[in-house]
Amino acid sequence: MRKVRVVVAQIAPRLGEVQANLEHHLEVIEQAREAKADVLVFPELSLTGYELRDQVADCAPDCGPAVRRLAEASTDLDLVVGYVDESPAHKFYNAAAYLSGGEIRHVHHKVYLPTYGMFDEGRYFARGDVLRTFDTSYAPAGMLVCEDVWHPTSAWLMAQQGASILFVPSSGPTRGARPGEVTSVEVWHELLSVTAQFQTAWVVYCNRVGGEDGLIFGGGSIVIDPFGRTVAEIEPLAEGLLVADLDGEVLRRARTAYPLLRDADVEMIYRELGRVRRTRFDLPGEDPEPST
């Protein structure tokens, strides 16, 4: 892995205003250039805002051109942006795109759409069905959108495919403030730290701020090293840019000290998962016997 400077944009996108958000993205890109960013990360649904409901379909047609416009701006720095991706079959995905060298390098469709409590994403979005990594000029990477990272297998699959950096764009709302903390920010930090530690990978978390319909987004964007230690973080609730340098040397040390990747037993997991699957869905097949 090459050394890379990441800038995280903890911003408050405007709900349903793709054009205004696009212009704001372009302004932030200018600032990130001044900070000599190699990669600039925007939050989940950064071009559209989060609590869209029926605006999902309304916004989608403007998202394509906006992402292409941002791709054009990605000649001297890479971008992670969030938007609504409409498929040719008119399925709407909660998507994150990795833009680089003037092109759309990779698109991730959010796999886990929270549909409980205050969340209703499963009603409005189609569920992504693959978890794939991609190459960048500095390291293989993966993108996991918000809830995706709450399922530990997501990060694990990314790491097993070689990802050294996990980008996690989010629109994570708070649940008020308990003494000493903005609720949910600390929970996120713990979860991300464990994710980085378990996968011995860099984690770059970009959570939005601002509010929509009374939802208040917490921010608390953070960069965590492959040991699970905080490299840089930004205070909750406020807009701002976070800058962090990710060093391949740290990744090497973490993976040398904790060879978890080396020791992951993919064959065993595959067999046991096959057994779980056969049991759960009542499928035919032989269960392997444990060796004696």
Binding site: T174, A177, P179, E181, V182, G211, P236, L237
Partner: peptide, 22 residues
């Protein structure tokens, strides 16, 4: 339940931001 204690500073910040924004 974590109880009814809130962080006054963060809570006030969230609520004043909410009022200004809305």
């Amino acid at each position: 339940t974590p109880g009814l204690k809130v962080d006054p500073e963060w809570s006030v910040r969230m609520l004043t931001d909410f009022i200004a924004r809305e």
